[in-house]
Amino acid sequence: MTYAASNYITVFDKWDDQKTFFCFTPEDAKRLSDFHPFAEKHVDEVVDGLYAHLLKFEEAQMFLDDAETLRRLKIAQRRYFLELTSGCYEEEYYENRIKVGVTHQRMGIPPRLYMGAYSYYLQLMIPLIYQYLGDDLEKANTTFSAMYKIINLDQELAMSAYIHAVEDVISKQTEEILEMSTPVIQVWEGVVATPIIGTLDSQRAQQFMEHLLEKIVESKSPIALIDITGVPQIDTATAQHLIDTINAVKLLGSKVIITGIRPAIAQTLVHLGINLQGIITKPSMSAGLKVALEMLAVGNTGFNKTN
């Protein structure tokens, strides 16, 4: 879904705008890179501190269950930490941050763990900044401000990637549902059946019609049963889609039997003034199948088998 991508991910083209919006200036980048040597000296202390904190919580422990995972994560975290003060915040930085969000989402780490860990990260970092630049309070403050901004930018990217990944899952599932929502089954030699479940909106109606027509030709079936037991209501648009489908089936030389018309639906169809004359309708699938078999037996199908 392009909607999701364009709405949630700060595309790289906009990354510079995003930095401007967060008031992250080249001076900020410079301040962070000045701090880099000190950060490098203390990186192990921060990373160890962070994981010692996380391991106190059962929810976080689940993701840090073995020594090997922990070792790998610490290496990644070390790199991550040093990148914060690298002074270079261009494409590679941007991509790594997006990857962090996607990886977290894929591992099933909830955003609150990510945010909570980041909050603790900052708590470990602030004393370091003041320890290093305590003599020059103004410089310490501006360095802290720069750190705060880059962390906010980081979090925005990671959260966007999270949301986008979830959107992606939803849109894939929607497609899958659409794909499997209109199965056409051959129930007997010469009879195909298709249950419609839910709503027949324009997109589904189109797909439904194509699918049914293909199956009728493929199986050389003179009779198609369309079961609407699973349709909660039929309005005029849905009825129109159904009638269009029935007419298209007729053009192939086959017949349609509509089954599963519930009393409430029958009454609304009458109120709406929808005319289903000339269409065979039955209250249940089994009644419809019986009629279909009778029609096949007497050869009253109008379908030329040599087609």
């Binding site: 909660p232 209501q233 039929i234 309005d235 005029t236 648009a237 849905t238 409430a264 639906i265 009454q267 609304t268 109120h271 709406l272």
Partner: peptide, 9 residues
């Protein structure tokens, strides 16, 4: 069903 159909229309 009547009400929902009217809403749909």
């Amino acid at each position: 069903t009547r009400i929902v159909t009217a809403v749909s229309e």
